[in-house]
Simulated scan of single mutants.
Amino acid sequence: MANIHPTAVIAPGARIHSSCEIGPYAVIGPHVTLAPGNVVGPDVVLDGVADIGAGNRFLASCAIGASPQIIGRVNQAGRLIIADGNVFREFVTVHSGGEATTRIGSRGLFMATAHVAHDCQIGDDVIMANGATLAGHVQVGDAAQLSGLCAIHQHVRIGALAFVAGGAIATQDVAPYCLVQGDRARLVSLNLVGLRRAGLSPDEILRLKRVFRELFHRGGALTDRLAAAQALDGDARAQTLIDFVRSSLRGVIAAPRRSLSAAA
């Protein structure tokens, strides 16, 4: 049997591995599955159709898997899939899918009061700091970092290894490897600190810098800038940046017009 506190409320049908720990006053719904090694803290609520992988930690008063905040669907909790080794700090909220499935990868850190809305797709090694908020259908790439109190508009994409600064409001896509800040968020530079921490070599960073300049610091139409970036001697990461910009439906956050004019 799992180590379950006597005050916890476990609905019939919940599947909990014997190595899990369930704290006082936790509530686990009937369609929740917990793989080995999960630690569920006091007053945590796990609900909806939630498949939760191994070794996750849910600290006090998280609410994970509740129905999406969509009018008319208050009592319709959808599907949530969480992989392995994540940490959900105090009062984090993660909502189940509305139209599809909410997915969270592995080894993420979701700090106190962060919010993941319905149908979001979160990669591996993502960090969401205190109060960071995702609206519905947001995609967050691997190892992206969202600082405190930032807000991401629905359907926006945050690329891999991107950095969204504290308090930023992102209403368009954030390109991979880039840093944005401000209200409304503007492009500042490549996320050089994050790239170095991720182990990119100086040569890899240099290739990204060249593509970055062509895409974001040259004048002219986007099609011309994409062509110029594509013509460079790039690598897989540089191609990821180009492909991300080319495929954007909402547009990608760029530098202010004055900065572009000065750099052209």
Rank of each mutant, 00 (worst) to 15 (best):
S248H: 04
G131Y: 09
A63L: 12
G72V: 12
L80N: 05
L109E: 07
G97S: 09
A50N: 02
R246G: 04
G97C: 10
N38K: 11
V116Q: 01
A8V: 07
G48N: 01
V32P: 04
Q121V: 13
A83Q: 15
D173K: 06
R246W: 06
I71F: 01
V164A: 11
G234A: 00
F88C: 10
H17N: 14
V9E: 12
R157T: 03
V49A: 10
V140I: 12
L260S: 08
R186F: 01
A264N: 15
L208E: 07
G131R: 10
M1C: 05
L249S: 14
P6N: 13
G108D: 10
M128I: 12
L215P: 02
V74S: 15
L192F: 03
I104S: 10
A117V: 09
A60W: 01
S189F: 01
V252P: 09
P176Y: 06
E21A: 05
I169F: 00
T93E: 03
R218V: 09
A185C: 07
G23A: 06
R257Q: 12
V164M: 02
Q139M: 09
D243C: 00
F110S: 08
A143T: 14
L206D: 13
L232C: 06
Q172P: 06
N75C: 03
R225P: 11
V156K: 06
E21N: 00
A165I: 02
S147I: 04
T133S: 03
A185D: 09
R73H: 14
D243R: 01
R213Q: 12
L226H: 02
A238G: 15
A83T: 05
R157C: 02
R258H: 08
L260Y: 08
D224H: 14
I16F: 05
G85K: 03
I205N: 07
L222S: 06
F88R: 13
V92G: 10
A165H: 08
V44H: 12
A198I: 06
S18E: 15
A221K: 13
A117Q: 04
H118T: 12
L249D: 14
R237I: 02
P36E: 15
N130S: 11
N75K: 15
I122T: 10
D203G: 05
L190M: 11
S189E: 14
V174I: 14
A238D: 10
I64H: 06
P36L: 03
R73W: 10
G219A: 07
A117K: 11
G251T: 13
S248D: 03
R250A: 03
S259Y: 07
N191V: 08
P42G: 01
Q239Y: 00
R257W: 04
R210I: 02
D124F: 00
G131S: 06
C120R: 06
P30F: 00
A63C: 14
A60G: 14
V180D: 08
T33G: 01
T7R: 05
V180I: 14
L222G: 05
R237C: 01
R257F: 00
P176F: 02
D124L: 03
A66T: 13
L232I: 09
C120I: 10
D125R: 14
S248T: 10
D224P: 13
Q145R: 12
A83L: 05
L161I: 07
G159S: 04
A228R: 15
S247T: 06
S147T: 13
R103I: 14
D125H: 15
L206G: 05
F91T: 13
G37Y: 06
A227M: 08
R213V: 05
